[in-house]
């Protein structure tokens, strides 16, 4: 079997982690007028890959992939990943998806690394990038492909959210995903050589928007 097939499964919208419920603040960005069409959506997502949560997520996922057989290290990474989420909703977004990812994988993609982690971590929350890296490591999926898949999953979910918000149509949405591939690949390549000292973000307005979304009057999404 090709090693990359599991990645297609894990990042499919059919994989039940509840990604559809989260917009990562996109719903507020639309309300604020920052994102209103394909061009502004693409620009917003490019900023996130270069300076926002997906940048740090790639670093955290890479570290988890390397430490897949070290439950104590994984627990530290999970704690750090939770602490880095800058708002209540962003914490919910990454924790509920990560916890769901692990529990679905425990049933459908068991591996020794996951067993050992779940035995040690107990009820501790595991954010998505750490969960994803752990399971990918448990199945010996190559690091670069793992990071590309995590990054692509983020883009696909947010572009799908943008379609549901009426920001753009389904066909334009796929053109945005296609145009983001170089940014996704670049982020994955960079994260291969980075560690926790390289964590860092500058998506200040996205973080501000994550807080403002909490009091947005009408909302489709939980973030």
């Amino acid at each position: 079997m090709s090693l990359s097939l599991p990645l297609l499964i894990w990042t499919s919208p059919a994989f039940p982690v509840g990604a559809f419920a989260y917009s990562h603040g996109l719903e507020w960005a639309q309300e604020a007028g920052d994102v209103c069409d394909a061009e502004s959506l693409e620009a917003w997502l490019r900023d996130l890959y270069a300076h926002g949560a997906p940048r740090n997520d790639a670093i955290l996922c890479a570290e988890a992939r390397r430490a897949a057989d070290d439950p104590a290290r994984l627990a530290e990474l999970a704690e750090l990943a939770v602490a880095l989420a800058p708002s209540a909703e962003r914490r919910l977004e990454t924790i509920t998806q990560g916890n769901a990812f692990l529990s679905v994988c425990a049933a459908s993609w068991p591996c020794a690394a996951l067993d050992a982690y779940r035995t040690g971590a107990g009820e501790a929350d595991t954010p998505l990038p750490v969960a994803f890296g752990l399971v990918a490591g448990g199945h010996a999926i190559p690091l670069r492909e793992t990071l590309e898949a995590l990054g692509l999953g983020f883009a696909q979910n947010l572009v799908s959210a943008a379609v549901r918000l009426g920001i753009l149509g389904q066909t334009r949405a796929q053109a945005v995903v296609a145009s983001l591939l170089p940014a996704i690949r670049a982020r994955a390549e960079a994260a291969e050589g980075e560690g926790l000292d390289d964590l860092g973000a500058a998506a200040f307005r996205a973080d501000l928007g994550a807080l403002l979304h909490e009091t947005q009057y009408t909302r489709l999404f939980r973030s």
Binding site: W44, H51, G52, E79, G200, A202
Partner: peptide, 25 residues
């Protein structure tokens, strides 16, 4: 217990980054 972490990283073309919509607007 680590309850809060923040890593601000604004490096290189500061003005250009701060101009971006999701960064500084």
């Amino acid at each position: 217990r680590l309850v809060f972490a923040e890593d601000l990283r604004l490096e290189g073309g500061v003005a250009e980054i701060l101009a971006r919509p999701a960064c500084g607007g």
